[in-house]
Structure formats: structure tokens, C-alpha cells
Computed example of a mutant assay.
Amino acid sequence: MNLFKNLLCVMLITVLLLAVAGCVQSEKTVVIEQEEQINENEQNELLVQKENSMSLVNAAIDLMNEKGELAFDDFREKDSQWYHNNSYITVWTTEGIRVVFPPKVSGEGENVSDLKDYNGKPLGRMLIDTALREDGEGWVNYDWPKPGETEPSKKCTFTKRTSIGNQTYLVHSGFYVDDYVYNKNLEDIEDINYFGDATVRNLINPNRVEMDMDMDIDYSIAHFTVKTGATLDSLIMKNPETYYVIEGEGMLYIEDVPFELKKGQLVLVPANAKQYIKNTGDVDLELLSINQPAWEPQNEIILE
């Protein structure tokens, strides 16, 4: 009898373990399927571009393995898979001698091991050291002006080590990050609206971005500066509007009910509510205004 009970217990425990294992396996399967779906359908443009740069470098190395240094002429050919717009293949020696540089062929042969980026970072050494480490490849991030511009942009470059015979080369290709990620400083915002005693800068608004980029958002963020003692005109937004105070003090009136504004304060104004703001402090009142959907003139009604 005891033997039967023991066998029964063993069988029950086995069934439970199998059930748990099945659940864990099912959960793992679901996670893997979800990750595959994200990878196939929802990759962001930045990730896609990083993969493109890596693929271009790897393809260039494959061509070098096939044609040797004769591949260098292919890399210099404009409007080819190797060189178009701001995308190109660069080849260095491990000493930092620039062997292939399509944007400026006259710069080939120069030693650029001491090259620095816009902010003084040792770009040359960073590229060399990254490619010479054990795994032989990696990414380098730095600041560099786009062609024809003087102010820097964030650039991301993939570099990889390879060899032709006894000669070791570093092959790299990069891209400007802000072509794929919206990235702005307040002082860089050119779209500035002045009205009365306030300044408005549209930090981000998918309806007002002059660039070929699908932002995939339906909200906007604006930076308000209200001068000391100033009161903004009453208005109504057809959508909810959120204010977040960065600096200063003031009062936000919603249907004539006062709400204190101070640093770190957040207030949500309901849709279709009358509102106006008054700076009650001794410094400029700075705040963020967040609208969803993104701000458009037809959603705002200025009251007299």
C-alpha cells in the first residue's frame, strides 16, 4: 500500500513538473515570437541605419578579400553602393594613414591618427583603438560638421579590422545620427514666435518639422518664456494641454480658478477650458507646454 502511495506521489510530482516546464517553454516561445515580430515589423530608423553601416563595412571587406587593393577604386566611385550622399567607405592603416577617403581623394596618404573631432576628442585614436581591440570591431561616437555646415552634428561610425596579405587595414563607415533621430538644443530652435511678453519655441511638433523624417508621434512640446509681471491672453485649447514649470513662479487660471505655478509643478488643463497665465515672480517664468494631438492653429482659440 505504501509503495502504491509513493508511486502515486512520484507520478503527481512528475506531472506537475512537466506542466511547469510546459508553461515556461510556452512563455519563452511567446517572448521569442514577440521579439521576432518587433525585429521584423517595428525596427526604428536608427537601428536600421546602424545595421546598414555594419553591412556596408562587411560587404567592403568581402570585396577586399576578393579583389585585394583593387577594391579601393570601387570605393571611390561616386553614386555607387559604396559612396553616395554622406555615406562612404573609408580605409586606414593601423598607423592611421588614410588610404581611401572618397569625399576628398587628395587627403589620401595623410596620417590622421591624431585627428580630433569638433570638441577635441581624439577621434583618430578612438577609431584605431576600437578596431585593434580583441573583437576587431566596434562603434565610435563623435561630433563632426556635415558637409557644407560649420556647426557639429552627432556622428556614429562602425569600424572593423581586416587584412590583405601582410597588410592590416581598418575599414569604417558612419552616418549622422540626427538624420534619423530628432535631436535639438533650445538655442538651435529657429522657429520662434513672439507675442506680447512671451516667447514660444516649438521644441518638437510633427506638423512643423522641416525634414524628411517620419516622427511617428501625435503630440507636441513647446518652450514658453513669460516675462516678469506679464499676463498672457486668455485662450481655449480644443485638446488637453499640460504645463510643466522649469523656472520661476506664476499663476495658471483655468476657468478663472487659480493654480499655483512653481519649479517642478505640473498642471493638466482640460480640453475646451478657458485658461491664461500670469508671471507673479521676479524672474522670467519658463515652462513646457505639451499638447496631444500636436498643436495646430485650428485647435487654439484666442479670447478677447
Rank of each mutant, 00 (worst) to 15 (best):
R208G: 12
N65L: 10
V226R: 02
P122K: 02
L285W: 02
E249A: 06
E66G: 08
L56Q: 08
T228M: 11
L123G: 00
E151L: 11
G250K: 03
E45F: 08
S153V: 00
V57W: 08
E210P: 04
M1H: 13
F101C: 08
E134M: 13
K184W: 05
A19R: 12
A230R: 00
N41A: 14
E35I: 12
K238A: 06
F195V: 05
L232G: 03
W295E: 00
K67Y: 14
E255V: 03
G250P: 01
D178M: 06
Y142L: 01
G109R: 13
K67Q: 13
L115I: 10
N207R: 08
K104V: 11
N166V: 13
I164C: 07
L8S: 12
L63E: 15
E241K: 00
A294V: 04
E149I: 10
M1C: 14
D62W: 09
L261H: 01
W144R: 01
L303C: 03
Y83T: 12
I236P: 00
D79Q: 14
P258A: 04
P122F: 01
M251G: 02
H84F: 12
N166P: 10
M1Y: 11
V10W: 14
L63F: 09
L285N: 01
K28V: 15
D256E: 12
I246N: 04
P293L: 02
H223Y: 15
W92F: 12
E241C: 00
W92A: 03
V57P: 04
G250V: 01
D197R: 05
M211V: 09
G165Q: 08
L268C: 09
K78Q: 15
L127G: 01
V57N: 07
N39R: 15
K50E: 14
G136L: 09
N183A: 11
V48D: 10
K104T: 11
I13L: 15
F72P: 03
P122Y: 00
S106K: 14
V177C: 03
E27G: 09
T162P: 07
T199W: 07
V245N: 02
V15K: 09
Y243F: 11
S106E: 15
Q298I: 06
V245L: 04
D73F: 08
C156H: 03
I97P: 04
H172E: 07
I13E: 11
V269Y: 00
S106C: 08
V245I: 12
E95P: 06
R201F: 05
N6K: 15
P297F: 02
T168E: 11
V15W: 08
G136Y: 05
P258K: 03
V99A: 08
V112R: 05
N207C: 05
Q292E: 06
M213Y: 06
G264C: 09
D62P: 05
K67S: 12
N111Q: 09
S153M: 03
S153I: 00
E40P: 07
P270L: 02
G229S: 07
I128Q: 01
N299F: 02
N44A: 10
Y88P: 05
D79L: 10
H84T: 13
Q37I: 10
P270C: 04
H223F: 13
S106P: 05
Q37E: 13
L47D: 13
K274C: 00
K154P: 00
S163F: 12
P258I: 06
V105N: 14
P258G: 05
